[in-house]
Amino acid sequence: MTAPDPGAWSDWPAPAKLNLFLRIVGRRPDGYHRLQTVFQLLDWGDTVRLRLRDDGAVRRAGNGGYGVAEADDLVVRAARLLQKEAKIGQGAEIEVVKRIPLGGGFGGGSSDAATVLVVLNHLWRAGLDEDRLAALGLQLGADVPVFVRGRSAWAEGVGEELTPLALPPAAYLLVDPGVSVPTAELFQTPDLTRDAAPATIADFVSGSELGNAFEPVLRRRSGAVEAALQALSQLGPAALTGTGGGCFARFGARADAEAARSRLPPGLRAWVAEGVAVSPLHRALPPR
């Protein structure tokens, strides 16, 4: 393979995700909550632009950052972590074209970081396998490993114990009420249910109503989330994703989701995306 041109930009997908349910089933000895969820990867998301540097520097390009210092930005941290782990002398410039709303629970920051890890591992020829990349991703955030592995999955632990799961084809109407609540703050909420009975994959597949532990909390504290879920529920089964304010409804076909989108109240930010079994990022990578 010809070495990548250090001066050329390349564009890579960073897909969004949904948590089709989210339960807290206890705490670990280290204080972290034990979760159960299903991650559904989507065919829509951010774009991560990368350009190699010969001087070893890792820099953020463009107008990104959204108030986050360069050294604290997950994409910069991901590149520097991989660089250190694999003892890489090259550097990179990173630009993120944002489409996924910040703090909505759609996984944007985690997916951007995972794309940096996976793609720079390829472009730098670092040679780390998927397990090592996922372990690096976990150092950056609990949702990063699912994007590194690139498969929709059943998840346990803090979200890193992943079992690939074949999900039926579906289209989703996504709504962003514009509410961003820090995850750490939500986990400290006194009325959060932290001891739900563990579910099984069979429970999920059978259609059992497993819910999202954060939904009642956010509905009580945010009128915007309550209004978005009420609006969505008039169109289809509505739910909260992750620990942000983002909501979604599931439909059997894209045309149905698009028709539902046209009936939303004016002013709601909304997108339609389809579920995928394999991440668009992994489809974009050259065969090994």
Results as ranks from 00 to 15, higher is better:
residue 186 L to F: 04
residue 153 A to M: 01
residue 176 D to F: 07
residue 160 E to T: 09
residue 182 P to A: 14
residue 185 E to D: 15
residue 184 A to T: 13
residue 181 V to Q: 07
residue 142 A to K: 12
residue 171 A to L: 05
residue 145 P to A: 14
residue 174 L to A: 12
residue 186 L to C: 05
residue 185 E to Y: 13
residue 172 Y to G: 14
residue 175 V to F: 05
residue 143 D to G: 11
residue 178 G to W: 01
residue 165 L to A: 15
residue 181 V to H: 06
residue 167 L to V: 03
residue 148 V to M: 08
residue 163 T to Y: 00
residue 165 L to R: 08
residue 175 V to W: 02
residue 187 F to D: 02
residue 144 V to N: 10
residue 186 L to G: 13
residue 153 A to W: 01
residue 157 G to S: 13
residue 182 P to V: 13
residue 165 L to H: 15
residue 147 F to K: 08
residue 187 F to A: 04
residue 166 A to D: 13
residue 158 V to M: 09
residue 163 T to E: 14
residue 150 G to V: 01
residue 148 V to K: 15
residue 174 L to F: 14
residue 169 P to E: 02
residue 153 A to I: 01
residue 146 V to E: 12
residue 175 V to P: 05
residue 156 E to D: 01
residue 176 D to C: 09
residue 169 P to C: 01
residue 177 P to M: 11
residue 164 P to Y: 01
residue 162 L to Q: 02
residue 184 A to Y: 06
residue 168 P to I: 13
residue 151 R to I: 09
residue 181 V to L: 12
residue 151 R to F: 03
residue 146 V to S: 07
residue 163 T to Q: 14
residue 144 V to L: 15
residue 141 G to N: 05
residue 157 G to L: 15
residue 157 G to R: 14
residue 147 F to Y: 07
residue 145 P to Y: 14
residue 157 G to P: 07
residue 147 F to M: 06
residue 145 P to H: 11
residue 165 L to K: 11
residue 155 A to W: 10
residue 145 P to N: 15
residue 140 L to G: 03
residue 155 A to G: 07
residue 170 A to I: 04
residue 140 L to M: 11
residue 155 A to K: 14
residue 161 E to L: 12
residue 183 T to P: 04
residue 173 L to T: 06
residue 183 T to S: 06
residue 171 A to S: 11
residue 179 V to R: 11
residue 158 V to K: 07
residue 144 V to P: 14
residue 164 P to G: 04
residue 152 S to P: 13
residue 142 A to Y: 04
residue 156 E to P: 12
residue 169 P to Y: 01
residue 179 V to F: 09
residue 138 L to H: 02
residue 184 A to F: 10
residue 142 A to R: 05
residue 163 T to D: 06
residue 138 L to K: 04
residue 178 G to A: 08
residue 147 F to L: 11
residue 178 G to T: 03
residue 181 V to G: 05
residue 159 G to I: 01
residue 187 F to P: 08
residue 142 A to E: 03
residue 141 G to E: 06
residue 139 Q to S: 04
residue 184 A to C: 05
residue 188 Q to W: 00
residue 188 Q to P: 00
residue 148 V to Q: 14
residue 179 V to P: 11
residue 161 E to W: 10
residue 142 A to L: 02
residue 174 L to E: 15
residue 148 V to D: 10
residue 158 V to P: 11
residue 174 L to V: 13
residue 167 L to G: 06
residue 159 G to Q: 05
residue 180 S to W: 13
residue 184 A to V: 15
residue 150 G to P: 03
residue 175 V to Q: 04
residue 143 D to V: 09
residue 153 A to Y: 00
residue 171 A to K: 07
residue 174 L to N: 12
residue 168 P to T: 13
residue 172 Y to R: 13
residue 169 P to G: 01
residue 145 P to W: 10
residue 156 E to W: 08
residue 176 D to M: 08
residue 163 T to F: 02
residue 173 L to Y: 08
residue 174 L to T: 13
residue 156 E to F: 05
residue 145 P to R: 09
residue 142 A to S: 08
residue 147 F to E: 12
residue 152 S to M: 07
residue 158 V to A: 08
residue 156 E to N: 07
residue 157 G to Q: 15
residue 173 L to N: 02
residue 182 P to G: 07
